[in-house]
Amino acid sequence: MSEPVNRVRRALNEAPADLLLDRVADTLAGAYGITRVQLLQVDYRLSALLPLGDGETVTSPGHPAWRCFDHQTPIVADDTAYLPVSMRGERRGVLRVAPAPGDPGTLHELAEAATALAHEIAAVSAGTDVYRAARRSRRLTLAAEMQWEMLPGRSRIRPSFSLAGQLEPAYAVRGDSFDWSDDGERVWLSTINGTGEGVAAAMLTSLATYALRNARRAGLGLADQAALADQAIYDLHRGGQHLAALLMDLDLRSGVLTVVDAGSPRLVLLRDGEVRQLPLEAQFPLGMFEATDYHEQRFELCRGDRLFVVSDGVIDATGQDVRYGETALDRFLRRTGPMEPLDAVRSLIGDLRAFVAGDLVDDAVVVCLDWTGPQD
């Protein structure tokens, strides 16, 4: 690692939480003669790159900033360099710097500085609202604020898997959500198709999410995780409220997928360009009855398999009195094969917005998980 990049890292480590970009700008000016630095963060809808501070919002898909975000590679245009601000697959935005360097080595060092900035933003965001507030083009509803704060992230990449998810309508989502965790050997993924309206729906989903996390962190298997969350919801609501969930546990070495379908969203497998729905055993939603006994199913994935989880808000989306439906969904999913999971999720959401001619009315969640095989 070069000395200028080390200086950027030291400056970030020592900077107050709200002055990360200022310290990066000062260090880049001294090391490379950079005179203009701007951070563009992707918004909650994945449809705009919003400046931190003054500046113009970037929405045009052909803009160099979007090309940098989409392809996750430095882009140079009109004496300006655009650098991915990403960490562990979580795409936070783009760093725009000028004048652009003339040699690839310096451009690579600037890209390393942008990655360091992404890590530091993640580290300080729990203690400041500066970066979260700048990521929204309009106010989040209270329910949406709760849902986004629960997420572990929107995307994740490791050598053996990659995943991404999105909540819609992004600024007003109520009960739909997802959660994930990995330890290098397994990845756990839960997707919730919430019920109810507003804050009440968000609170029900929060209870289920934290109950599932509590059971997972205690080392319980999927069936017991479902049972614990089921009991937590039933104890509070006595069957008056319940929600659908899909729990998955993927062994990253063997590709064995363990599933519990608790009245779940739809699980679709994309293999060799063909779409198929896995035959899940439908079981009761979480919280519907007291002491439900849940059962696990196992499937063997092939290297390169892609899984999509979609809630009924996707299939039931309506435009001009026409339902989006499973046929249109399957047709679109086939086209996502070459895309990275976040791009596939974003493309599907974009297709749904075009279909309904605006934001979705009902909650929808889309999650995409790729298994790339064991990595020795």
Rank of each mutant, 00 (worst) to 15 (best):
L39P: 02
M288T: 08
S2Y: 01
A262E: 00
T57C: 07
A245W: 02
G255A: 06
P152S: 05
A172S: 15
E120S: 01
S177C: 09
T372M: 14
V314Y: 10
R92H: 00
D18I: 02
I233N: 07
D22T: 13
T35Q: 14
T258H: 09
T59D: 08
V37P: 01
L83P: 03
L280E: 04
V275I: 14
P16H: 09
R91T: 01
S206H: 13
L267H: 12
L167Y: 07
L40T: 05
A282M: 04
E56G: 10
R136A: 15
L243M: 03
P338S: 06
E90H: 05
V85G: 03
V259W: 00
A202N: 07
D182N: 08
A98C: 13
L21R: 05
T209V: 12
R23L: 04
G165A: 08
P64A: 09
S254N: 14
D321R: 15
A81L: 03
A211Q: 07
T59N: 09
V85A: 03
D272P: 05
L270P: 01
S160P: 06
D43A: 10
I34F: 02
L212S: 13
N214C: 13
E296Q: 13
L270N: 07
G319M: 11
A232Q: 12
P279N: 00
G263E: 04
E149I: 02
V173L: 05
H108S: 15
A218E: 12
L207T: 11
Y324F: 15
A208F: 02
Q320W: 12
E149F: 01
G373E: 12
G319T: 14
R306M: 06
S347Y: 12
G127P: 00
L252V: 09
D54S: 14
S137V: 10
L49W: 00
L140R: 13
R303P: 01
V124C: 01
D363P: 04
L236W: 11
G313V: 06
L246M: 07
L352Q: 14
